[in-house]
Design a binder for these strands. Sequence first.
DNA 1: CGCTCTCTTGATAGACTTCAATGTTAGTGG
DNA 2: CCACTAACATTGAAGTCTATCAAGAGAGCG
Lengths: 213, 213
Amino acid sequence: MQVASMPDWLDIVAEGDRPSRSVLILDGFVCRYRLLAEGRRQIVSFHTPGDIPDLQSLHLKTMDHNVGTLVPSKLGFISHADMHALIRRFPGLGSLLWRDTLIDAAIFREWMVGLGRRNAHQRIAHLMCELLLRFRGVGLAREYQAPLPLTQMELADALGLTVVHVNRVLRSLREDGMLRVDRTSVSILDWERTTDLAEFNPLYLHQDKDAPT
Amino acid sequence: MQVASMPDWLDIVAEGDRPSRSVLILDGFVCRYRLLAEGRRQIVSFHTPGDIPDLQSLHLKTMDHNVGTLVPSKLGFISHADMHALIRRFPGLGSLLWRDTLIDAAIFREWMVGLGRRNAHQRIAHLMCELLLRFRGVGLAREYQAPLPLTQMELADALGLTVVHVNRVLRSLREDGMLRVDRTSVSILDWERTTDLAEFNPLYLHQDKDAPT
DNA sequence: CGCTCTCTTGATAGACTTCAATGTTAGTGG
DNA sequence: CCACTAACATTGAAGTCTATCAAGAGAGCG
């Protein structure tokens, strides 16, 4: 495995690429996104250390979206050939990775529910709850505070909103005493009211390791 | 494999279930969806014959969404135990199914882009293009006409809109000569203008079987 | 110090929703 | 064959959420 340090704002893989290796995040924060006409962008996922954000390229040769860093990050690269060999040798690893892509998909679905059926307040609250639990899962968050190295524009592009509106809603949530977001972190001040507002149910994160039947 | 015929409007699997088998669609039309408070619903995917809509239950024990039929359908049930045995015996089958879940996820991402960044006209046009190509892929569509056994309310719940607005936009697209939707099918009258409007790029469907590198 | 990027706020506009009512279609039973 | 019903489709009017346009304030950086 090769290791490389990336600056913020660098594309790791772009739409149309046919990668021969996958990326393991060792440190940092990465997102996947698609671009449309007139500069519109939709961020479709965030990824934390331990994730393999472009695992799909192992079975789908052509990338249908972009993967980029959001902060300076340390990345490991594993060739698809090596991964296939490892999976052949340890079939359990294959199942684990497959399971990972399924959790990815579960998060996509939950974001779809938000984009389609939650208003701006709920979407923001929901995303913050999700990120808090995910960062906790990798030991990077305190009880109710998680790193959040995102600009409001990046939040907007993940939430399907404009920067202006994100800014206003963040202020309103802050003034309500629910949660507080700054350039580096998020604090959830009232977990119960926040999860209520967001209709947040963490089941979709499948963090319990899903004790086998 | 057991086979069963289902009426329209029946839930096959519900949120919270821990299924011990997966469903193969032999005939019909199936969707996955989540429910929120006050009767809000988001449909997150549609599935055509040949799909295994709850394949994820093979590796994620607890369902985080519902699966239901949209028309009278014929379904096959395969126990997870049998599937695991088959995959152990034919590792290539595992890769194929994994690949299927990755295409699923790619479609989720594209829907997210629509829900987040496309307006109602574009969303409808995009969904119709997608369904046409997918139905063609399983030999169920003619050149520019595909079955579409959906009410406007079901469309609305998939598109993150209200029935009223879907109705108005459908009329506008019809009057524009782009496409025509009725209770049973969709006809795309002007493919070029429709794909242009929707910014539709079929790459995400990975229908080319992704000729290996 | 000037530049750029981000955050913030106000005013205005537009897309989509909500509420309400009517028209249409298909199925059921007498 | 026709009344009757329920689900679905359609249309209008009014309201709300979010976008757009515009401008100023802070913060980081060479």
